[in-house]
């Protein structure tokens, strides 16, 4: 999963980014002004946007309206210092999916971001189940047939993304866009390395493959 943080307080943005990377294994990008934020949100396929309201160049509410106007459906969590009902209503009516008032709890921010991404992908439960595979997104525990499977952070990222879209074909390019942040060098063969690692770890005795490769199209978890 890849998240965009639009926040002009760099320290705040970095703290949130660190929390998302460490607490959810997300790829995180940071934009420090409204125009940059809008450009990034429109040009990159984010799974969620965390948006501050007081932004240089373009304020958060305008950014949100333009984003929704350009038919972007990315879930948006607004970070605001205002608690008045009117401003909250205005936010939600402008297309925000949720909001948090500053100063907020990073744990709550993490949980709300996860819930937003889940909903955005059409999932309700924090525990994703595909056959006898079980992925708990809240503590990132992966089990197959009741057996714990330890994964690296990148392997988990790949698996979680595929698991959010069970039965769908996910291209290598899509995986690259959703698993790496902006500053990362993207090599498609890295994905193959993670996929083969995942296959090896997830394989149980039943010999039934969960991750299918569709040549020239991508991968599918089923």
């Amino acid at each position: 999963m890849r998240v965009l943080i639009v926040e002009d307080e760099l320290r705040m943005a970095e703290n949130i980014a660190r929390s998302l990377r460490e607490g959810a294994s997300y790829a995180v990008d940071i934009a420090t002004d409204g125009e940059e934020g809008l450009y990034m949100a429109q040009s990159e396929p984010y799974d969620a946007v965390l948006l501050d309201l007081m932004l240089p160049r373009l304020d958060g509410l305008k950014l949100l309206k333009q984003l929704r106007h350009s038919k972007q459906h990315t879930p948006v969590l607004v970070l605001t210092a205002r608690e008045e009902k009117e401003s909250v209503v205005a936010l939600l009516n402008a297309g925000a999916d949720d909001y948090l008032t500053k100063p907020f709890d990073l744990g709550e921010l993490l949980a709300r971001t996860k819930a937003l991404i889940r909903r955005g992908k059409g999932q309700a439960s924090p525990v994703l189940t595909i056959g006898n595979l079980e992925i708990n997104t809240s503590n990132r525990a992966v089990r197959r047939a009741g057996k714990n499977i330890p994964l690296t952070a990148m392997e988990y990222r790949v698996l979680e993304y595929l698991a959010h879209r069970p039965g769908a074909i996910v291209s290598k390019a899509e995986l690259l866009e959703h698993l790496y942040d902006y500053n990362w060098e993207k090599f498609s063969n890295v994905i193959e390395v993670y996929i083969s690692g995942l296959r090896r770890k997830l394989n149980d005795d039943s010999e039934r493959q969960l991750i299918h490769t569709l040549r020239g199209q991508g991968y599918m978890l089923q």
Partner: peptide, 18 residues
């Protein structure tokens, strides 16, 4: 005051995350 307090809080919380 909320902004600096929010920053301080997030700094400490992310430090305590693990």
């Amino acid at each position: 005051l909320k902004t600096p307090v929010a920053i301080l809080k997030s700094t400490l919380q992310s430090l305590l995350q693990k």
